[in-house]
């Protein structure tokens, strides 16, 4: 991103607040996320970690406060353009087959390719070699690409969702429990892949995890949402 000055925050969150009924789940949440940062989001269950992530990509309307990416609000970017740069990977990974009109039964590869049919990516192309490299890093054979999207196990679906997002090279990744359904070995491989991915300049991520050790291993800074209740 040419317009990003050196030392300027990628993502800048100011005084964000979220209300459920009359009760503030959290408010006054402010932080800056710089290139290379990985911020761990910690809080007890039900404290609204997922809701914070949804707010950061405006899947829910922002009730209070502002979010800026590269100095511009999501609406100034246009939401599709913003979400292609600040990408949220939900905890519950779903297959997006049958989006393209003619595909009823989609494989993992169909899933990965179909994203490029979205308007924001019309100038980009599916990179088969890249996906293959990543699959090797994750210890999966090429047959993974031929699995049916709807018949994936929870862990396989998470891998699919992660690869689907990574291949779009967002600048900020919001990972909601990215390894919750994975075994220890695959979790380590995913972490290595993510670290690799983060080495690229102008990239950052926010991570939630029920696994305190993972947060510790993987993130340099932590934001405890419980303190903003």
């Amino acid at each position: 991103m040419g317009e990003l000055g050196f030392g300027q925050a990628l993502l800048s969150v100011e005084n964000l607040g979220r209300q459920l009924g009359d009760r503030w789940l959290w408010r006054g949440v402010s932080f800056d996320l710089f290139a290379g940062d990985c911020l761990g989001l910690v809080a007890p269950s039900g404290a609204g970690k997922t809701l914070l992530m949804r707010n950061l990509v405006m899947l829910d309307p922002i009730q209070r406060g502002t979010v800026r990416f590269g100095g511009k609000t999501p609406s100034q970017w246009g939401l599709p353009a913003y979400r292609s740069r600040v990408m949220y990977v939900p905890q519950r990974a779903v297959s997006i087959e049958n989006v393209a009109q003619n595909v009823l039964e989609g494989t993992v590869q169909d899933n990965l390719m179909q994203v490029f049919e979205l308007g924001v990516y019309h100038q980009r192309q599916f990179d088969f070699t890249l996906i293959q490299t990543w699959l090797i890093q994750l210890g999966r054979g090429p047959e993974f690409l031929n699995l049916q999207g709807t018949r994936l196990s929870g862990g396989e679906a998470q891998i699919l969702a992660l690869l689907r997002a990574l291949q779009l090279s967002p600048q900020v990744l919001l990972l909601d429990e990215p390894t919750a359904s994975l075994d220890a070995a695959t979790t380590a491989r995913v972490e290595a892949l993510l670290l690799d991915w983060l080495r690229h300049p102008h990239r950052a991520c926010i991570l939630t995890s029920h696994d305190a050790e993972q947060i510790h291993r993987f993130t340099q800074r932590r934001l405890n949402l419980g303190e903003f209740a």
Partner: peptide, 15 residues
């Protein structure tokens, strides 16, 4: 989930 996954990936509301 399907609709919101697409939105999160950068789909327009119509897509």
């Amino acid at each position: 989930d399907q609709v919101e996954t697409l939105l999160a990936l950068g789909a327009t509301r119509w897509e």
